[in-house]
Design a protein around this nucleic acid. Structure first.
Lengths: 110, 110
DNA sequence: ATAGGTGCAAAATATTTGCTAGGGC
DNA sequence: GCCCTAGCAAATATTTTGCACCTAT
């Protein structure tokens, strides 16, 4: 699962895990995802008009949510650390950040 | 409402509007917020662990959600347009973007 | 009269929780 | 046995929707 780049919803994870552990329940999935997210081991991505996505990558990167296919793409671009630094100078303690783009992905655009 | 900087939830907006229009319903609030957001006239901000916030500013800016007080602060920093441009060069059609920081705000940090 | 927007309430969706029970030490 | 975690189902939270009605054109 660590190598997963598909940003699945809790539901999708549930279905997948169920193949391995047929009696697992959705509640358990949510419970564990929440704990993992609190620990900072995974990333919870709340999305407009839909269930949250989960990301198993914890290195800083962006996401692009396609309006049409709904797929969440990883965007490989370096984070401008200047933003975080600037915030910290202003007295904010940044725990995590999230940069989200919405629009049409290359596939759906054409 | 246009000058509002408090990033209210639909519920908060409902309560406020109800002062003016006592018989308004929450469903109508949601309905109208959704339309406005689709038109790009307001911004819908999905938040982890809570209801979406709405922002009446449409100029590009960031938000900082405090883990403790839950308040959404406006962060006044210029958007690096290079990111969007880079995405567009890669074939993405960017409709809107959203940069969200989570952590402790200056008030709650101390 | 017709179109568009609304109230109301039910439905749909998403997530959390209480409680009981089972597995590992 | 004790503790931790899970299953299950109910509860909660959030958002959307159907439908009848009202109002302005």
């Amino acid at each position: 699962m660590q190598g997963d780049r598909s940003h699945p919803t809790a539901e999708a994870i549930y279905l997948r895990v169920k193949n391995q552990i047929p009696h697992i329940s959705l509640g358990t999935i949510y419970r564990n995802l929440k704990v993992l997210a609190e620990q900072g081991l995974i990333l919870e991505i709340p999305v407009a008009d839909g269930p949250a996505r989960y990301d198993f990558r914890t290195d800083n990167h962006y996401h692009f949510i396609c309006d049409k296919c709904g797929h969440a793409h990883d965007i490989e671009m370096p984070l401008p650390t200047s933003l975080t630094q600037s915030l910290q100078r202003s007295g904010y303690a940044v725990r995590t950040q999230q940069i989200l783009f919405y629009g049409l992905c290359p596939n759906c655009k054409s």
